[in-house]
Design a binder for these strands. Structure first.
Length: 190
DNA sequence: AGCAAGATTAGC
DNA sequence: CTAATCTTGCTA
């Protein structure tokens, strides 16, 4: 699933009451990480459900949004059947629609390609908040649309920032996209 | 009850 | 390199 999400579009229609209400903000997913069921010590579901991970153990195709480091939000797509607890983290998207609205949620000086580079930035740029936790991603304000054409090449590396299962090759990205976070210097700027 | 670490990021 | 500061799990 993490692999299949590369090239898909993540889109949100900003709801009433928020800045830029009614605006479509969207981007092409260029970086994901898989968190596996049952066997993955880095997965939030590894030690069973908690209050925070309720939606992770809910229905596949729904959102799991949580706060990390007490500061940033991370957006995930639940991948397994209810009660299992596994997901894909969306780490970066390349802005498509609503660039001005994204710009306003970041800073006016953030370069376009960097608006949603990094998992915390994805949530900030699209205005994804904790109220999105558990949202159905097939219908509603927040959606994922799969592409007709899949990317020709997808790079696979270890996941970012882990101590447990640190070397498992579960991070996927489009090496042609500048919006990927933490690209090795070797691959940057092509 | 107290504490350390964590799927991060912007700013010294 | 550090602060910011929420949630969880481990130790006492």
């Amino acid at each position: 699933m993490a692999r299949r999400l590369i090239g898909a579009t993540l889109e949100r229609v900003i709801p009433r009451g928020e800045p830029d209400a009614g605006t479509l903000v969207s981007g092409r997913i260029v970086e994901t990480e898989a968190y596996l069921p049952n066997v993955d010590p880095a997965c939030h579901g590894y030690r069973g459900p908690t209050k925070r991970t309720a939606s992770l153990f809910g229905r596949p195709g729904h959102a799991y949004v949580y706060l990390i480091y007490g500061v940033h939000l991370c957006f995930n797509v639940v991948t397994e059947s209810p009660g299992t607890g596994a997901a894909v983290l969306v780490r970066a998207i390349e802005p498509l629609a609503g660039v001005d609205a994204m710009q306003r949620r970041r800073s006016p000086h953030t370069p376009r390609w960097a608006l949603a580079s990094g998992p915390g930035n994805v949530c900030r740029a699209l205005g994804i908040g904790r109220e999105c936790d558990g949202a159905n991603l097939r219908r509603g304000d927040l959606r994922i649309v799969f592409p007709e054409v899949v990317p020709s090449r997808i790079a696979v590396t270890a996941r970012v920032g882990l101590s447990a299962a640190a070397r498992w090759p579960l991070r996927f990205y489009d090496p042609a996209s500048r919006s990927v976070s933490r690209l090795p210097a070797r691959e940057r700027g092509r």
